[in-house]
């Protein structure tokens, strides 16, 4: 079965004809060319494919496009505005939060979801919010520091 879905992706309304079994990660990467969303484990375990759906973090490798009809999707490509990196992107860049960079889009979107909900998280709250995101470079300390720097900047 196929259906027409209408999504808002990074502020742009997109209409697509999709099969019922299509995954959100495939729509973003293969149809929309938004390859910043990464496929890691492909089974909902690593968090690399995290995007925001209606402002909340969501694993796009286990989300059906059909279930996202009418929803607002944000990917890493939509984070920079007017040529300026988001606070989290800049903090990850300047504080060595990114090493190989593969987990970074998922980390930044999971952290974005946290900071919208809780602008002043303590370290434990950051660790819990990023608990579903794996970094195989194991650079977790710098990632947490980056989120703390971004949170401080966003509050000021």
């Amino acid at each position: 079965m196929k259906r027409i879905v209408s999504l808002e992706i990074n502020g742009r309304t997109v209409e697509e004809i999709v099969p019922d079994n299509m995954l959100l990660v495939d729509l973003l990467r293969d149809r929309q060319g938004l390859t910043g969303t990464k496929q890691g484990c492909d089974g909902g375990e690593c968090g690399a494919c995290t995007v925001l759906v209606d402002g909340r973090p969501r694993l796009s490798c286990i989300a059906l496009v059909a279930g996202c009809d009418g929803k607002r999707i944000e990917t890493i490509e939509g984070q920079a505005k007017g040529g300026h990196l988001s606070a989290l992107q800049r903090a990850f860049h300047e504080n060595l939060g990114a090493q190989c960079g593969f987990c970074t889009p998922g980390m930044i979107l999971a952290a974005e979801g946290l900071l919208r909900d809780n602008p002043a998280p303590d370290e434990d709250e950051i660790r819990v919010a990023l608990g579903g995101n794996l970094c195989r470079c194991t650079g977790y300390v710098k990632i947490i520091e980056s989120v703390q720097v971004a949170a401080a900047e966003m509050r000021s």
């Binding site: 079965m1 099969p19 019922d20 079994n21 299509m22 995954l23 990660v25 495939d26 293969d30 496929q39 492909d42 490798c61 059906l64 059909a66 279930g67």
Partner: peptide, 10 residues
């Protein structure tokens, strides 16, 4: 493409 889901109707 991801490892494909089998075809189904939703």
């Amino acid at each position: 493409m991801s490892e494909a889901l089998p075809e189904f109707q939703l």
